[in-house]
Design a protein around this nucleic acid. Structure first.
Lengths: 108, 108
DNA sequence: CATAATGGTTACTTACAGGTTACCACTTTA
DNA sequence: TAAAGTGGTAACCTGTAAGTAACCATTATG
């Protein structure tokens, strides 16, 4: 439990995994799509997910550089769980826009 | 997504919810069962879960005091998700060590 | 020349979840 | 008289996830 939480229980990791659920994406694409994440935080998020075997980093030796991120097999097993989480969120708070202590920005 | 993570993406909340999945429990019982949690942290964990509508706090006006915690309807909807998370954890870490020594990704 | 584009790094700061320890009120039991 | 049992508070401290802003190397383009 602590381990799955170490992977999912962060601000950005579930979002990154969700974004990669059916297509690979480049660093800049993720950065643009998520919008409010800084490059530094995205970098560490991606690095940690790679270390955990959740995603794969493919670097093309070009100029300007290109790096593509994609889910590993293990990463893909997390997708249904994340979808369930998003669904729960939606069902239980969609109408109830009340003050949640940890709700600081819009849902994703 | 941020909201379900605010509830599940913490150290103790998923554990408390899991413990209450099929029976109510008193403060002291939770404290003893979890073991490594401090009373202060358990108190705030329970208070936040109550504010989020995940569990119900029933105080008996006795001496010595008695307080019983139980999941609300909404709290119960989180149980299957938590079970899935625990299952994922098990399959991808514990299980690997014991029964699947030759997994591809375990080679790293 | 200088700007854009890419995928970062470095240095610094801040917010807050979580932890430690001591203490409280009240009553029963020894 | 004092300890045990209950469900907490109060005061204080710490580690780290996350945020901000500036900078980097390389090449192509206007």
């Amino acid at each position: 439990m602590h381990r799955s939480m170490a992977i999912l229980g962060t601000k950005w990791k579930p979002i990154v995994i969700y974004m990669l659920r059916e297509r690979t994406a480049r660093f800049g694409q993720l950065h643009a799509a998520i919008g409010s994440i800084s490059k530094k935080v995205l970098t560490t998020t991606l690095k940690e997910l790679e270390e955990d075997g959740i995603l794969h980093r493919k670097e093309f030796k070009e100029l300007p550089p290109r790096v593509e991120y994609s889910l590993t097999e293990r990463g893909r097993t997390l997708v249904p769980i994340i979808i369930q989480l998003a669904k729960w969120d939606n069902e239980h708070y969609e109408h109830n826009k009340k003050n949640h202590p940890a709700q600081k920005e819009a849902a994703v």
